[in-house]
Design a protein around this nucleic acid. Structure first.
Lengths: 347, 347
DNA sequence: CTGAAAGCGCTAACAA
DNA sequence: TTGTTAGCGCTTTCAG
């Protein structure tokens, strides 16, 4: 309690009425100042600002929202914050929201539809102004469709079939095709596609690119080289081993994402193989770790921060103009060649 | 619009009054049902629940909070979500909050006091019921002290000098001492302490353990072996190089945390050294990646999820009983020996 | 540009 | 157990 500290009456919280009284103006004037309205005379405005300072007044958005139906809050629902891809994406989202005076209510669904449903209900109860969603596996499209009619919604990373809402993602198809083409150029003929949940749109797109790449080079698509998994390192590890035991085993793998690719590399090493030398591995995402592994991971780079930032931006625009035509924003993917595909000798 | 779908009048949102009318009870009864009060007769309760279903009513917490001064929201402020340590911690926090019907407003400060201050203001405007904070560098203790008098606050991972509030952290001092003792046992005499911001309490504690370990074995503390840094891989990388050029260089390094340790290992490799063979590296945290690096990182394990869960739990308890004596909860640390310290030959 | 009055959707006494 | 009456702190017309 320094003497210069604002005179905080701990018991009764200071309200806008107190500020109005102190400044000698009406409540609505204070309200206008609070929201940076240009309608207030500069001199009045200063008086109000001073009063706010003196009283240590804190704007009560809870009250404001009740009246204005705007919470300046959005729900951010992702499948796994422990995946660095989503961590970086979250940073992008947050930066954009912060700029515009919004905050995120965070939820981690662990890629399960039930947790997601529970959180979506919570989000609505808290009157979030919008929803940023990476749909979990088994998401009911119907439910999200319903939801998106009254709650501005933007999807990222994964889209949902027959659901026309804003979406921001990467060019998965092209990225995957570039990767496969690169592997084929390196002489590989038996290329596996490892990992990812079956109902992920991102996986479908990457798989399509993979197929296109093969077909374009007159290689057959062999179903025994396609594996679906959950999305952790352990899953990648587990998935690669049976592939090695095939009669005609693959010599390379394009993985659903980097995390799975890391698992695959570990699995290979556990089986006495040397990724980058006797087996080629390519990931997807270009997470920061990718460059740091031994061997460094060749991967299809997409920018998670940008995806997050764009999705957030798009959502805020939609909140302002709900009738806007939904947009599908696809950010480019590029192949980053490192050691794990065997194309480069050393660091 | 399936026929079975609830009859959603898109224009007028359904309120508690509508539910009351539909169920033929008063508003307060509905309110009680909404809050699971045991005072309502089971039969009435069912009628209300049915009405809620039929109307597709959504509980408006915004309105509830205005009256009850409870938002069921807490502010979660961390320094860097891209650090897997904080990502896991967040998971722990979230799990606990979810169980108790709370949601987190997330903020990533990038370890800067200004961003933190801005967010703290936002948190208050949004009437968060509590604050879970890992203080950024340069945090004004006075400001947080002031804040904590009206906002239930719990710190984690880093504490603040002369601030008596709930705190959950790891046994940094002991952990560091165990690590140093291990290195000394391995024959190292010149051991560096690398990384971490000077004003992090966690760093101070780890440094103290480091000193204790040396002193207890009659080794001198050499200030030229102590480096402060920011907390990214790049910082670790940068920090180790000058150390190698010393006239009497270190042969081992205890790092502020795993992320810095990864950087140190990369720096060593860039300098043509072999961590785990001609230089020993030990980290702190035991992030998931630690086990997967080549060489696998020896590190002091603390459980981020547990720290997060405990801190959240403690905060919720305090929200219920604000007069409780603040507690300082220290979770144990254990040394996990892998390859980077050279004590184990192979995987 | 400023003021007065009404009310957002809920909860908290209190009474019935 | 349920209903009645205020009113949380703000924004929003609408006048002045």
């Amino acid at each position: 309690m320094t003497p210069s500290a604002p005179n905080h009456t701990t018991t009764q919280p200071v309200t806008l009425v107190d500020v109005a009284r102190q400044a000698g103006v009406s409540r609505s004037t204070v309200s206008l100042v609070l929201r940076n309205s240009p309608l207030v005379a500069e001199e009045t405005r200063q008086r109000v600002l001073t009063a706010i300072q003196e009283l240590g007044y804190i704007y009560n958005r809870g009250a404001a929202r009740l009246r204005s139906q705007r919470s300046h809050t959005i729900g951010l629902v992702i499948t796994d914050i422990a995946n660095p891809f989503f961590a970086e994406l979250t940073i992008g989202v947050e930066a954009t929201l912060e700029q515009q005076g919004y905050v995120a209510l965070l939820a981690n669904t662990s890629d399960t539809a039930t947790k997601q449903a529970r959180f979506l209900a919570t989000i609505q109860e808290h009157q979030a102004d919008g929803l940023l969603l990476c749909p979990a596996r088994g998401t009911s499209v119907k439910a999200i469709k319903e939801l998106s009619t009254h709650l501005p919604t933007a999807l990222f990373t994964r889209s949902l079939p027959r659901l026309v809402v804003d979406y921001v993602g990467a060019d998965n198809e092209n990225g995957a095709e570039m990767a496969v083409t690169h592997l084929i150029g390196l002489g590989h003929q038996r290329i596996a596609f490892v990992g990812g949940p079956r109902d992920s749109s991102a996986r479908r797109e990457r798989l399509r690119g993979y197929r296109n790449g093969l077909v374009r080079h007159d290689l057959a698509v062999d179903k025994s080289l396609l594996v679906t998994t959950d999305v952790t390192r352990a899953d990648g590890h587990r998935a690669i081993l049976p592939l090695l035991d095939l009669v005609d085993p693959p010599t390379a793998a394009l993985c659903y994402n980097d995390v799975v690719a890391f698992g695959v590399m570990l699995g290979l090493q556990a089986a006495g193989r040397k990724p980058g030398q006797d087996f080629a591995v390519i990931g997807f995402d270009d997470v920061a770790e990718a460059a740091l592994w031994q061997p460094a991971l060749t991967t299809v780079a997409i920018s998670p921060q940008q995806i997050g930032a764009q999705a957030a931006h798009r959502l805020l625009v939609r909140i302002e103009q709900p009738t806007l035509e939904p947009q599908r924003i696809i950010l480019p993917a590029t192949l980053v060649i490192r050691q794990s595909c065997g194309a480069v000798r050393t660091a």
